[in-house]
Amino acid sequence: MSSIALKLLKPLGLPEKLSLAQLVKALVVPLSGILIFLFIWNIAARNIHTSLGEFPGPTQVYEQSLNLLSEHNRERQKEVAFHQRQEVRNAAKLEKNPDAVVKTRPYTGKPTFIDQIGTSLITVLAGFFAASLIAIPAGIVIGLNKTLYSAFNPVIQLFKPVSPLAWLPLVTMVVSAVYVSDDPMFAKSFITSLITVSLCCLWPTLLNTAVGVSTISADLNNVSKVLRLSWLTHVIKIVIPSAIPMIFTGLRLSLGIAWMVLIAAEMLAQNPGLGKFVWDEFQNGSSNSLGRIMVAVLVIGLIGFMLDRIMLMLQKKVSWDKSVELR
């Protein structure tokens, strides 16, 4: 029992060996916090009446999460059945005439909640990577050059607080105009969400990289000068490693923002992810809708938390400064 508990606790950044007192502290205290929250939520939910019925409490949310799972499983079974039928049909066709052209059609059922989680994750990671690919090199260049930094700092500060909802109409129009192809590799909604996410989560990485790069100790710069390192070697051997902790701080902030922005972007861009799920449930307006949205809320929170933990793990792995306690 306790070994399972330990395995569960490991990703929370707790030490591997725990005494009983530590276990109580690490497990019982947070659990009681959750219980208190559930209790308050339960009471509050019963007293909120909406046009779609009572606000969902923990029980309804639990039921709806089971529902969503079983819907997913049913959809998967349908898909398997579809592929089986197709194979049987094709096999029969080939038996009659070995030269017959057989078509394999993809299954086109509606995406389930789980599929939508997958889409959201792919979109957010794509947007985050695109942003990082721009922000890290740009941050390094800006951080190394004081003039560039003072030139671009106002622009960065100007765009940093802009909401995704403001960007989205512009991005949508630009994508519609520029991304024209008969056989698009990606859906427009995906591209629109990706770009919106990138635009919003670019800034923390950019700024933190620039600051990290510009605060390299003068001594290390002098070492580089005495060794006559070329610009590229200087950047690779001295600048990047020394800015890595700051870069990762930026990346973590960026990923957090990316995930938050994504839900809004998906709602409006109709990218089939969690944002669209929430929007569709809201439009649907059945008595289960609020419960299902609440499931999405919790899942969004959980995934956001997990993404942050993964980044923290990476950060700990690449951080050379072991004296700093990362949390």
Binding site: S217, D219, L220, N222, V223, V226, K237, I238, P241, S242, I244, W320, D321
Partner: peptide, 14 residues
């Protein structure tokens, strides 16, 4: 050819 030993060692910590 004029190597410097710095006061606070200035080793690359990584």
């Amino acid at each position: 050819e004029r190597a410097v030993v710095f006061q606070n060692h200035s080793l690359l910590p990584w």
